[in-house]
């Protein structure tokens, strides 16, 4: 389903410019009437604080650069969401907590104080989310904002990439309270569909979540994990993966291994960035725009 948006309107809403507005994303149409007021939020993903290696020699500065770029937006978003892998994994539980504390300190410099988090497998899979929950709270939750129902799904605290029957029951109970035309945004880390199973780019029981969401007419999923912009439809549900803030990964199946793309000294921070999502009261409920970090 083609998706069109008036770019000038979006720029007026978000107060930004200089980037090409994405199109053909299959975003739900005609849900805008349920949105109570135009607003936008920002999605940042896969910051991997604590990573060190050749794929990003500026790893110690990249998160701070992203925070500065978000703070430099002419208009500030209503809220910011980090869709997982806030920190890079470590077997050392003490070091894991140190990285989470540092991450929290750095993002505390964001002008926007309404910041939401969900875990990635690097944050939560080795201790089933224990350290993550100490710092960032529950890994699955809902909230409502100006007419949109947001659902944060945890598909990483089980190291086997499972949402789990308990959380699926929780999701089902939450959805049971909603009208079928309610605009819904799902925030999660792994893709809920089998994007590239042999690269572990999947959620083992993600199809069960998609099945629960399918009866609803205006569902959009935003996720991370794959370190690149990617758009996919399951039925009428669009799924949008965000770029990373540490290193880009290759396109699904484009090469034998999912090894990070090499850092380009001639174009530092290439392939890194974040995303703005605009919610509107008329026309398509949502519009998205990608903001490269190397232009920040």
């Amino acid at each position: 389903m083609p998706y069109h948006v008036d770019r000038r309107d979006f720029m007026k809403l978000a107060g930004i410019g200089g980037a090409v507005f994405a199109s053909g994303l299959g975003l739900p149409k005609a849900a805008g009437a349920a949105v109570q007021q135009d607003f936008f939020f920002v999605q940042l993903s896969d910051t991997h604080w604590g990573f060190a290696g050749a794929p990003n020699p500026e790893a110690a500065n990249t998160l701070k650069r992203a925070v500065a770029a978000a703070n430099a937006l002419a208009r500030q978003p209503d809220f910011i969401v980090f869709t997982g892998d806030l920190t890079h994994t470590t077997d050392d539980a003490q070091e894991r907590r140190r990285r989470m504390a540092e991450f929290r300190d750095i993002v505390s410099a964001l002008k926007v104080k309404d910041v939401r988090y969900i875990p990635g497998e690097h944050d939560a899979s080795l201790d089933r989310g224990a350290a993550y929950q100490e710092f960032f709270g529950k890994p699955n939750y809902t909230f409502d904002h100006k007419g949109i129902h947001f659902i944060a799904l945890d598909n990483v605290s089980d190291p086997g990439a499972l949402i789990g029957e308990s959380q699926l029951a929780w999701l089902s109970a939450d959805l049971a309270q909603l009208k079928r035309d309610q605009p819904i945004v799902v925030l999660t880390h792994r893709p809920l569909f089998d994007l590239q199973p042999d690269w572990d780019w999947a959620t083992r029981d993600g199809a069960k979540a998609v099945e629960l969401l399918t009866p609803f007419a205006n569902v959009t999923v935003f996720y991370g994990h794959i370190h690149q912009e990617h758009h996919h439809m399951t039925g009428r549900i669009p799924h949008h993966a965000a770029t990373s803030l540490i290193f880009p990964l290759p396109a699904p199946g484009s090469q034998p291994k999912r090894a990070p793309l090499a850092w380009d000294p001639a174009a530092p921070f290439k392939g890194l960035g974040f995303r703005e999502v605009a919610a509107r009261t008329s026309g398509p409920a949502l519009g998205i725009e990608e903001l490269p970090l190397n232009k920040g």
Partner: peptide, 9 residues
């Protein structure tokens, strides 16, 4: 496919 640490990938 069960996340096991820094070399899992």
């Amino acid at each position: 496919d069960s996340f096991c640490g820094s070399g899992h990938e």
